[in-house]
Simulated scan of single mutants.
Amino acid sequence: MIHYLALVLMGPVFVVQGFYVRKVTPKLEEATGERSGRCGQGKLLRLLLIGDSAAAGVGASNQSKALSGNLVSALSGKFQLEWQLLAKSGYTTKDTYDMLRHQPKEQYDVVIISLGVNDVIKTFTTKDWLKHQIALVVFIREHFSCRQIVLTKIPPMERFPALPPPLRWYLGRKARDFNQHLSLWTATQDDCELLDINHRLRPEQMAVDGFHPGPGIYQFWGQSIAQVIKTRWHSGD
């Protein structure tokens, strides 16, 4: 893969740029507000949302304007929802897997996963990352007895305003490689849906740190996940 060659040739440059980005990028807090609840009317649907800072709502002031709030709002008119959010800034796929292992066994109908950006930033290879993703999905099936797992492609990191070139280019290429391999695997899994909203992401819609989604992205993302869920559950699947 070309991004592996770039890492060998330009590794020291990427390290220096990474330190610079961490130093100058504003550190935003996770969104405040409820991380679980019951609402809506209709057929009972139990949701679990897991993942990283995007799942935790960094870039939004409150969970009502973050991914969880927009998702719940888009579904509550059709379903009686019982939902929970388990997410933390900086989490990789492996971090999330380790966290979930300490959660009690519960039954959820749908599990939504927001992960990947931190895996790209770390030194994980594509093979290792895919192995972590598969292990997480297998665990979720067994531990939460869910019938639908919704994942989202890693965003186009080459468009992140916070990242300078050539680091921006490198992380973007790596993210695309991760997405390609995840797409091939999820296509073989009947209970998995891989959502791609990258065509709708614009740098000006991102949070002030130039790294996280802004409220407009969260709204579109939440509505897109809700549509995927409605399609499966209204089809009688």
Score class of each variant (00 low, 15 high):
Val24Cys: 01
Glu142Tyr: 01
Val228Ala: 14
Val150Lys: 04
Thr32Met: 11
Phe144Asp: 12
Ser224Tyr: 07
Leu167Pro: 11
Leu47Ser: 11
Ala55Leu: 08
Ala187Gly: 15
Val208Ala: 05
Asp52His: 07
Leu28Gly: 02
Val16Trp: 12
Asp128Tyr: 02
Ala6Gln: 11
Gln180Pro: 04
Ala60Lys: 04
Ser68Asn: 09
Lys27Asn: 05
Tyr4Thr: 14
Ala207Lys: 01
Gln148Val: 02
Phe139Arg: 01
Leu48Lys: 09
Asp190Ala: 15
Ile50Val: 15
Gly59Pro: 09
Lys88His: 12
His3Ile: 03
Ser114Leu: 08
Asp109Pro: 07
Gly172Asp: 09
Thr188Met: 10
Gln17Gly: 02
Ser61His: 01
Arg159Asp: 05
Thr152Gly: 07
Tyr97Glu: 14
His234Pro: 00
Leu28Val: 05
Asp237Trp: 10
Gln223Leu: 10
His3Lys: 05
Ala31Val: 03
Asp177Ala: 15
Phe144Met: 05
Leu9Gln: 07
Val16Leu: 14
Pro161Arg: 06
Met206Ala: 06
Ala187Val: 01
Asn118Gln: 05
Val16Pro: 03
Leu86Asp: 04
Thr188Phe: 05
Cys146Met: 04
Gly214Trp: 02
Leu5Ile: 15
Ala162Lys: 02
Leu7Val: 13
Pro165Ile: 03
Arg35Ser: 08
Lys88Tyr: 03
Met10Pro: 05
Ile225Arg: 00
Ile2Tyr: 07
Tyr108Ile: 09
His143Asp: 03
Ala207Met: 02
Val120Trp: 07
Asp119Pro: 00
Leu136Tyr: 06
Phe124Ala: 10
Ile121Ala: 14
Leu48Glu: 08
Val120Thr: 13
Ser76Glu: 14
Asn118Glu: 09
Leu75Thr: 11
Tyr218Gly: 02
Asn70Thr: 08
Ala87Val: 05
Ser76Tyr: 05
Gly69Asn: 00
Arg159Pro: 02
Asn62Glu: 08
Gln80Ala: 13
Thr231Lys: 13
Gly51Pro: 08
Gly69Leu: 03
Ile134Cys: 07
Ala87Asp: 13
Leu195Asn: 08
Pro155Ile: 04
Leu167Asp: 05
Phe178Gln: 08
Met206His: 04
Gln80Tyr: 10
Ala207Gly: 00
His234Asp: 05
Lys65Met: 10
Ala54Glu: 14
Pro156Tyr: 07
Gly37Asp: 12
Arg173Asp: 03
Ser61Val: 00
Ile140Lys: 05
